[in-house]
Simulated assay, not measured.
Amino acid sequence: MLANQTPTSISHRELYEQDFCLWVEQAVQLLSENRLSELDRENLIEEIGDMGRSEKLSLESNLEIVLMHLLKYQYQSEKRTNSWRYTIIEHRQRIHKAFRNSPSLKRHFVEEFDNCYIAARELAATETGLDIQLFPPESPFTPDQVLDKTYLPA
């Protein structure tokens, strides 16, 4: 079957298991044609929910990376590299892009900030080989500092 052909003998629900991309294309078509009775609503609801979760997990991952590198930058000043600064800039840009695309993620950023710091603290200790107790139990950086494109610890 060619990529632009839609199987006529298979239901939208069955297509989900066989060809996800084609399932998405068909979902868009069915929705645009208001053919709701043919739509695989159960999987569509799940996929839409997963999209939101995926965006949140991506935000958390980027935040953890920024926090980890800020910790390394502050507590291993003798080992600072352009690579660390690059990583901080790159992941800040990803966070800002996520906020532009989904402003509601700012609320999630604030809600998960402390949890992300705890994870970043563990990662920083592991990566640096420093005792985790060297890093403060609560973030020495504010959410505003983390988002500030020019902020780097002294």
Rank of each mutant, 00 (worst) to 15 (best):
L63M: 14
E46Y: 10
P136Q: 10
I45Q: 13
I132V: 15
E111T: 05
W84K: 01
S37A: 14
P143Q: 08
N62K: 06
E14A: 11
E90T: 15
D131A: 15
L63F: 05
S11W: 06
I45A: 09
R35H: 10
Q18M: 09
P7S: 08
K149F: 05
A154S: 13
S102M: 03
T81I: 09
S32C: 03
G49A: 11
V28D: 07
E138T: 15
M68D: 05
V66H: 01
A27Y: 01
H96M: 11
S58E: 15
W84E: 07
Q133K: 13
E60V: 02
N34G: 02
K106V: 00
L30N: 03
Y16C: 00
L36F: 14
Q29N: 07
D144A: 10
L63I: 12
H96I: 11
E55P: 01
A3R: 13
Q5T: 14
K72N: 01
L152P: 02
L63V: 06
H91I: 05
T126C: 13
I95E: 03
M1T: 10
S32L: 01
E122A: 14
L30P: 02
Q145V: 04
M51L: 15
N62P: 01
E55M: 04
E112R: 12
C116W: 00
L30G: 00
N101F: 11
V24A: 08
L147G: 05
L105H: 04
S61Q: 12
L44T: 09
E46R: 12
S11H: 11
E25D: 12
I65Y: 00
S61R: 14
L147E: 02
Q29V: 08
T142C: 05
A119Q: 14
T142E: 07
I45K: 08
E17D: 13
E42D: 13
E42I: 14
L130W: 04
C116H: 03
E127N: 14
S9Q: 12
S11E: 08
S32T: 08
P137C: 11
G49H: 10
L134T: 10
P136M: 05
F109G: 00
S58T: 13
K56V: 09
W23N: 01
W84R: 01
D131G: 05
N82G: 15
L134S: 11
L63W: 02
L67H: 00
C21L: 15
L105V: 07
N34Y: 04
G49S: 08
R94G: 10
I65N: 00
R41N: 12
T81C: 11
R35W: 02
T126F: 14
E14Y: 05
P136D: 08
T87C: 05
L30H: 02
H69C: 04
D19Q: 09
Y75P: 01
D40W: 06
F113K: 04
E60N: 13
M68R: 09
W84T: 03
H108K: 04
P103I: 03
A154P: 15
S32I: 02
Q74A: 07
Q145L: 06
V110L: 12
